[in-house]
Nucleic acid binder design. Structure first.
Lengths: 253, 253
DNA sequence: GCTGTTTATCGTCAGGCAGACGACTATGAT
DNA sequence: ATCATAGTCGTCTGCCTGACGATAAACAGC
């Protein structure tokens, strides 16, 4: 068998779709764009686009991320955060019927970003917005009448759910939660990230003990801030550690 | 912009490649096939093939797995093991230069299988064999002169390394290690799986306490065996639990 | 200035779990 | 019978977590 006989394989279109997550006003939100054309015209979808002919998958994802948000993706091996987002491959979706018109395989990527001012419209002027993931995933069940009542286009609800689940589990055993924070942040801000992503309430004292006691997780910058009100809090940057051992435990139920 | 203008996207070939792992004689082994044609003719590679026009990615991976090993993949939602392997998507590799002849995107899958009698040659009579992952990954550094001295074809060394890393981390917090065992197995056999995959030695007493004390991990069948020598050991099947909480801890270093 | 509110931070205590390791059991091999 | 090999049950100690009390340092309003 010649697995590479150029006439022997069916042609596919390959796209990257992005699950871009952030934490806004105590809720986990995802970036959604409104489709301007069929199929699913007028419906919300995840941002994405075709992989170019000379482009790696991660490059295509980084390019789409810049186009949609202006965020530059970190090099995973680069120091801590500059002002970029964490970007990693999530999974690949290739059901033959996922796009009604042609065979499209989508390599979904997950991006975690700090709270951004506002999504900028894509170069093609599609509208874009941040929406709480709960609203994007549980549509139709609440009798809501607004524009978001329709489920996401294609299989994007599944992709989003997988991305959210990845984020939820990954902040347990890695320092990825800091990707949701600005370059300098307080322990309380980091705790609110965990609370928003997991949808739980954490004990501030035990959380503080845990994160400050894990070597390499946080490094104090020396500064303090009162932007959250109350007693001034120390500012930290993300330390070099990427894996938390032992992990942060997610409360049950 | 029309992301689906049929003339606006470059065509890709899409393949699935398989990282099939098993534990044989106390070593973690992977299935490798010898390439019969250029490029990389004569070199070892991971089994794989094209995704068909009407086929889902997971179906293609399951089909390749049957063709290469005769193993039927579990339905992830099916009961415990029948005589199949665990199969899950691993990651997707799409470097523009990963195949010298054309643009190929490969959706790699990870399969975990019990020790099999012997790999059966593919329908196209390629030769296939189990090889310790260390030998497949660390070629050239040991001055070995045998047929395996050449590194794997394409980017398959990277794919294999990623698959091994996935398996190593996933048996920490899931019951996946039982996928390496026959339908009925002893605690000692399961422990040898962990030892082979992690490349460590575990304390038999603490391991026994851990796995028998985790609800839903193992269910006794009532039988015993002495196939490992020594005192007869209880036989178990995999229980319904898929997530281990708290996880099995991998010894450091 | 005083008081109440908010958030941050430090401490204490009990329970659970893991690592280290002793002890005993039940087989087969010599 | 003795030994070697595995399996299984216990004990002890230290670490970590969850629950929660207490103190500190800011701001808002009176």
């Amino acid at each position: 068998m010649s697995p590479y006989d150029p006439s022997a394989f069916p042609p596919f279109a390959v796209t990257v779709d992005l699950v871009v997550l952030t934490v806004r006003s105590h809720a986990l939100c995802a970036l959604a764009v409104r489709r301007g054309e069929p199929p699913f015209q007028g419906r919300w979808a995840l941002p994405g686009g075709f992989v170019r002919d000379d482009e790696d998958l991660s490059s295509a994802a980084a390019r789409e991320l810049v186009e949609e948000t202006g965020l530059r993706a970190h090099d995973p091996d680069a120091p801590a955060q500059a002002n970029g987002a964490h970007l990693e491959q999530l999974a690949t979706y290739g059901d033959p019927k996922r796009d009604p018109r042609m065979r499209v395989v989508s390599v979904a990527h997950l991006a975690l970003a700090p709270d951004l001012p506002a999504p900028r419209a894509g170069g093609d002027a599609r509208s874009a917005r941040w929406a709480p993931v709960e609203a994007l995933l549980h549509q139709g069940g609440y009798g809501r009448e607004d524009e978001q009542a329709a489920p996401l286009a294609f299989d994007h609800a599944q992709i989003l759910a997988d991305g959210v689940e990845r984020a939820r589990s990954k902040i347990e055993y890695s320092s990825l939660a800091t990707a949701f924070c600005p370059p300098e942040f307080t322990v309380g801000e980091l705790r609110r990230v965990y609370e928003a992503v997991w949808g739980v309430v954490l004990d501030p004292r035990n959380f503080h003990r845990k994160v400050t006691g894990t070597p390499g997780f946080l490094v104090p910058t020396g500064g303090t801030t009162t932007r959250q009100g109350g007693r001034p809090a120390q500012l930290f940057r993300a330390g070099g550690a990427t894996l938390l051992n032992p992990p942060m435990l997610r409360p049950e139920v």
